[in-house]
């Protein structure tokens, strides 16, 4: 067993709910536990509003936890002093979905990539410049880009710049928040290949957040499926895609349109994703689940071990085992 690089332990995040009256809050992330080992990619999939981006922000320490704890190399961020917090922050970086918004439009590419260096003790201008060149080279951009502005670059090139910036401080973990969703298919392939290469070269761990299951499957070692703030299934990638156990995971996988016209789309789920204000009791999926029973409407299941590399949170699974 590897020692995990990042360990989430029953992490929760509540936000005050606006417009619903006083003192109410909703749980954007609810009792999430997850380990990420050095050099591995964990995919985090789910539909909009399921809390996957919030979880990413929690990992980056951009938001405070409501409950639970996050350990990075065994250390709890909250217990560190300011200098240690800074050092730890530089170990975890992010690449956002929209490189248009994640790059300051008033900065030149050189200024964008050197920003983290300047903020982390690279005082020597010459060394910094050298490092920026080296970083751009790593992501496949030449020197001629140094003096350009983000709007002069294509979407794919901008995402390369964002990646160069993310690896500038030699982080151990990068949160990839839908890094290819805003890109065209042909460019998406370039970026995915680049990420894979960098992971090999730099021994990076990725927390790969996406709603695109095909892309997640391509890049991840294991995949966590989130629904309504909880991880409802967690398994090694092949296991999850070949043998999904949670009814929601099954529905999700069946909903992906297949490129083969002869494999028709099966729509097995009706109804809408519950909104935060109408959060159902019990298992959050019961309102759309085809095998829900009274128990599901009352009691939310816990994530439970099924077999090596596969955990599921579904009442039907425990039922099945008892019978």
């Amino acid at each position: 067993m590897f020692k995990p690089l990042l360990s989430l332990q029953r992490v929760g995040k509540e936000f005050p709910a606006r417009g619903t009256g006083k003192g109410l809050s909703y749980k954007a992330v609810n009792e999430v536990s997850l380990d990420i080992c050095p050099g591995e990619t964990v995919g985090l999939v789910g539909e909009s509003g399921c809390g996957k981006s919030t979880l990413g922000y929690l990992v980056l320490n951009l938001l405070d936890l409501t409950s639970g704890e996050i350990l990075f190399e065994g250390q709890n961020f909250a217990n560190l002093n300011k200098d240690q917090q800074r050092a730890l922050k530089s170990q975890i970086q992010i690449v956002f979905q929209d490189p248009q918004s994640s790059l300051n439009p008033r900065f030149k590419i050189e200024q964008i990539v050197e920003e983290p260096l300047r903020l982390n003790g690279w005082r020597d201008k010459q060394k910094r410049k050298e490092r920026v060149r080296q970083l751009l080279d790593k992501v496949g951009l030449g020197e001629e880009y140094l003096a350009r502005f983000p709007h002069e670059l294509s979407g794919g090139q901008r995402q390369r710049v964002a990646i160069a910036r993310a690896i500038s401080l030699n982080p151990k973990l990068i949160v990839l928040d839908e890094p290819t969703s805003a890109l065209d298919v042909s460019v998406q392939a370039q970026i995915l290949n680049l990420l894979k290469k960098l992971q090999r070269d730099l021994n990076l761990a990725f927390l790969f957040i996406s709603h695109n299951l095909a892309v997640v499957r391509h890049l991840s070692n294991k995949v966590a499926v989130m629904y309504f703030g909880r991880i409802i299934e967690l398994a090694d990638t092949n296991e999850l895609f070949n043998n999904p156990l949670h009814p929601y995971t099954k529905v999700l996988l069946q909903s992906i349109p297949n490129i083969n016209p002869e494999k028709p789309l099966l729509v097995e789920v009706e109804g809408e994703i519950p909104t935060l204000h109408k959060s159902p009791l019990g298992c959050s999926f019961h309102s759309r689940c085809s095998i829900a029973n009274d128990l599901c409407r009352e009691a939310g299941p816990e994530l439970q071990f099924i077999k090596e590399g596969h955990w599921v949170s579904c009442n039907a699974m425990s039922r099945g085992r008892k019978e």
Binding site: N61, K89, S102, N104, F107, E115, P116, N120
Partner: peptide, 19 residues
């Protein structure tokens, strides 16, 4: 997001305002 990104490299408030 570029402000969020700056926060992840530990940018202080004065930096975020001025830059």
């Amino acid at each position: 997001q570029f402000v969020k990104a700056a926060q992840t490299f530990g940018a202080p408030k004065v930096w975020i305002i001025s830059r």
